[in-house]
Amino acid sequence: MDDQLAERLADVDARIADAARAANRDPAGITRIVVTKFHPASLVEALYALGVRDVGENRQQELTSKTAEVGSLDGLSWHFIGQAQSNKARAVRDAASVVHSVDRGRIAGALDAAGQPQSGVLDVLVQVNLTDDPGRGGVSPDGVVGLAEHVAGLAGLRLRGVMAVAPLDEEPARAFERLAAASARVRTVVADSDWISAGMTADFPEAISMGATHLRIGSAITGPRPTRG
């Protein structure tokens, strides 16, 4: 298992490096987040042993249970990438190093209010909806600046940039180009909020070509997700 995991990780890292060079970018400027959804906490430990220092979860329950089970691993960052709910803000804040999915002021406010004196400042990204469906997660492109201004005004949060998922019915590069435009608008609010969280297993080369700084990659590294009973 560990040999196969190491091979998949090395393969993805080589592909990231190739895509970065093709885009005239330094691979060192790209953070690879391994999404461990539905996998046991032992996989996080195995990934850590292979040098992985950024892992992602999209369910609060899994995030909370895995951080508790794994404990404190030096230098490991937990990225919450799922839809945030205000009633779970404290649990997310207690476990996450970064929240990628702030898509409305209420969530931002709840995460800010959930901070404890020992919590420090929480890194967050504004999630942008790149589809025409208002029911999808993310703020509309027209609302990005307003939400960024709201987040920037909260003392317990640090605005780092933007996040999005490419629509299934569109060329990923075109969608990520719109995300790059949203990133530029956010940087008019907070100049150094230059993180762009975009790209998953199927489309990370296109995300890199459009400036992604953080990739969220699951099955290409972890293998198939376990069946949920």
Score class of each variant (00 low, 15 high):
residue 130 L to N: 11
residue 154 L to S: 00
residue 164 A to S: 13
residue 139 V to E: 04
residue 162 V to H: 04
residue 186 V to Y: 06
residue 128 V to R: 08
residue 138 G to R: 00
residue 131 T to E: 05
residue 123 D to N: 14
residue 117 P to I: 09
residue 174 R to A: 15
residue 163 M to G: 04
residue 117 P to C: 12
residue 126 V to W: 01
residue 142 D to R: 10
residue 128 V to N: 07
residue 157 L to R: 00
residue 121 V to Q: 07
residue 154 L to W: 11
residue 120 G to H: 00
residue 128 V to C: 12
residue 155 A to C: 03
residue 131 T to K: 04
residue 177 E to W: 08
residue 117 P to A: 12
residue 154 L to R: 09
residue 124 V to F: 11
residue 180 A to V: 10
residue 169 D to G: 06
residue 134 P to L: 04
residue 115 G to Q: 08
residue 164 A to I: 05
residue 117 P to R: 11
residue 184 A to S: 15
residue 164 A to V: 05
residue 155 A to R: 14
residue 151 V to S: 03
residue 162 V to M: 10
residue 117 P to Q: 13
residue 193 S to A: 15
residue 118 Q to H: 12
residue 132 D to G: 13
residue 137 G to H: 05
residue 140 S to E: 05
residue 118 Q to L: 10
residue 132 D to K: 07
residue 143 G to K: 08
residue 175 A to F: 10
residue 163 M to L: 12
residue 161 G to C: 08
residue 122 L to S: 12
residue 130 L to C: 09
residue 131 T to M: 06
residue 153 G to I: 04
residue 184 A to F: 09
residue 154 L to G: 00
residue 194 D to R: 13
residue 130 L to P: 08
residue 136 R to T: 02
residue 156 G to P: 02
residue 181 A to K: 14
residue 127 Q to N: 08
residue 174 R to T: 15
residue 119 S to W: 02
residue 138 G to D: 03
residue 164 A to K: 01
residue 185 R to E: 13
residue 160 R to K: 13
residue 119 S to I: 03
residue 170 E to I: 08
residue 161 G to P: 06
residue 120 G to E: 01
residue 156 G to I: 06
residue 195 W to L: 15
residue 141 P to D: 09
residue 138 G to A: 06
residue 172 P to F: 07
residue 181 A to D: 15
residue 140 S to M: 02
residue 139 V to D: 01
residue 168 L to F: 05
residue 162 V to W: 06
residue 115 G to D: 04
residue 158 R to C: 02
residue 118 Q to S: 14
residue 190 V to E: 00
residue 158 R to E: 02
residue 161 G to T: 09
residue 123 D to L: 13
residue 147 L to W: 03
residue 119 S to L: 07
residue 186 V to Q: 06
residue 161 G to K: 06
residue 165 V to G: 02
residue 175 A to M: 12
residue 139 V to L: 00
residue 174 R to E: 15
residue 140 S to P: 01
residue 135 G to T: 14
residue 190 V to Q: 03
residue 123 D to G: 14
residue 120 G to W: 03
residue 138 G to S: 04
residue 121 V to P: 00
residue 138 G to P: 05
residue 116 Q to P: 04
residue 191 A to F: 07
residue 182 A to L: 06
residue 123 D to W: 07
residue 157 L to A: 02
residue 129 N to F: 11
residue 143 G to F: 09
residue 173 A to T: 13
residue 178 R to M: 13
residue 128 V to H: 10
residue 135 G to H: 14
residue 158 R to K: 07
residue 116 Q to C: 03
residue 157 L to F: 03
residue 157 L to K: 01
residue 125 L to V: 10
residue 141 P to K: 04
residue 134 P to R: 06
residue 127 Q to H: 10
residue 163 M to Q: 10
residue 179 L to W: 05
residue 149 E to K: 14
residue 143 G to L: 08
residue 135 G to C: 12
residue 152 A to E: 02
residue 133 D to V: 06
residue 155 A to H: 10
residue 136 R to N: 10
residue 141 P to Q: 03
residue 186 V to M: 07
residue 168 L to C: 01
residue 166 A to I: 10
residue 188 T to S: 13
residue 178 R to H: 14
residue 143 G to N: 13
residue 195 W to E: 15
residue 118 Q to P: 01
